[in-house]
Design a protein around this nucleic acid. Structure first.
Lengths: 248, 248
DNA sequence: GCTTGCACCTGACGCGACGTCAGGTTGTAG
DNA sequence: CTACAACCTGACGTCGCGTCAGGTGCAAGC
């Protein structure tokens, strides 16, 4: 416990591990990659650490718990002139992005789970997941596009018009709902980029339950749209005979 | 493009990769681990895929984008009788936990970044991060303890009492604030488990800025407490001569 | 038929942050 | 002096691929 030469407290590697909440293997690893300086050894080549090592490891652990990479931590601790602020800000941005991604994921998972609870066919559940996943991918891909704001506004207009029809008691097969359904269908085809799998997935989604946050369309409205679409004559949505997915 | 034997559409591995948004290497990998069935080969041992493979890969990709492991995906797609609902629910729980963790992390990072913006000494910034990290660890560790609710309530009482003193215009060195500060100090010592590093880190935190969400203590109240503590006689907080961190 | 050149093949190593043996050595308490 | 825990090194495994390296297949133009 006391070093005979200097009279100061020292730690064996196991003690250090317990004190810092790390494992012995981790300490070996840190030494191996140069994050922790090689400790002086006994005659039998066992490591003896001192208080500076303890302090450094506490800092390392705190920074590691922030999710920083060991390389970043090393540069933050060793490179006095540099990094710190930049690394922290970059990391904050990464965390924010990840948070957003996980948030979307959670709403998706919530829907999938409620589906799975009600609906017993695994095929359908997976198809719904596929559909939502597709919509999100396309949605975020198109969001960068130039006309996406117009498109979103147009969707809201369509929704409002359809809701008006519904509230006015018009049958789904009446002329006005059918015209709106025709436009909606055209937009879905456009949105899916002619990809039949996407369209099938969207159809599946429509039949079950639409994520609430996608455009603010209520399930009732979706059902109304679905019925209106069902009353449309069968349109060829893609050049006939195309078996499945293709690139445009 | 057309298979001469069956007359059906087929895909070369590069086409399949582009169609599904994966890479050729990924497809090799999936075959290697048994997630994708080995495709039939040409005479020259090149793989030829069909529409079933495309469908499977779309599903795989959707499930992968949920963050599921490839092993889980395989069992979900192959094991008809099983898993799906359980896997989804377990994954939702994992995602929720991760979301919570990242949320805490973000508030911590926000504080650290604002610190780093104002305060130019990297040492102090790291010390603050260390302090917050410690507080969170201990906080969540102790939360499971039996008396944690009492402790939290007592902290709120202390805060309220101190705030009353402050509003009443009592000097921080007046008897009542000093008594309260003494109890706060005792509780901090107890909380830190006699760990001097934790106490130093807490002190550091107190001097800078306290995370708002920790106990609802305002910065002004913290300063008031700090002044009251400063007016206390120096207490020996741990058996003298103990150099730094120890286990209890 | 021959060449060109891209697409494809297998095999292997690398990443990040360690976990987990295996097989041998050291330190210390009794 | 003898146990026996703690320590040592080295190596392989994890997860989901990326990235070469060195060789082969396929389709098209001449």
């Amino acid at each position: 416990m006391k070093d005979r030469a200097t009279g100061r407290r020292h730690w064996r590697i196991g003690e250090l591990a317990e004190a810092t909440g790390l494992t012995v293997r981790t300490l070996h690893h840190y030494e191996h990659i140069g994050l922790l300086a090689p400790a002086p050894r006994t005659e039998g080549r066992q490591r003896r650490y001192d208080a500076r090592d303890v302090r450094r490891l506490y800092r390392i652990r705190a920074l590691r718990d922030l999710g920083l990479s060991l390389a970043d931590i090393r540069s933050m601790l060793d490179d006095h002139r540099a990094a710190l602020v930049d690394v922290l800000r970059a990391h904050r941005a990464r965390v924010a992005a990840e948070l957003e991604r996980l948030g979307r994921l959670q709403t998706l998972l919530d829907h999938a789970c409620t589906q799975a609870d009600r609906d017993l066919d695994p095929e359908d559940v997976i198809a719904t997941i596929e559909a939502m996943s597709r919509v999100m991918r396309h949605g975020s891909a198109r969001r960068n596009g130039p006309a996406s704001k117009d498109a979103e506004a147009r969707w809201r207009e369509l929704g409002a018009a359809l809701q008006a029809c519904m509230k006015a008691g018009e049958a789904p097969s009446a002329p006005r709902p059918r015209a709106l359904a025709r436009e909606a269908l055209a937009r879905i085809v456009e949105f899916s980029g002619g990809d039949r799998a996407t369209m099938e997935a969207l159809a599946h989604l429509r039949r079950l339950e639409f994520p609430k946050d996608l455009a603010g369309w209520s399930p009732a409205l979706m059902r109304y749209l679905d019925q209106a679409m069902a009353s449309l004559p069968k349109t060829r949505r893609a050049p006939a005979g195309r078996p499945s997915q293709e690139e445009p």
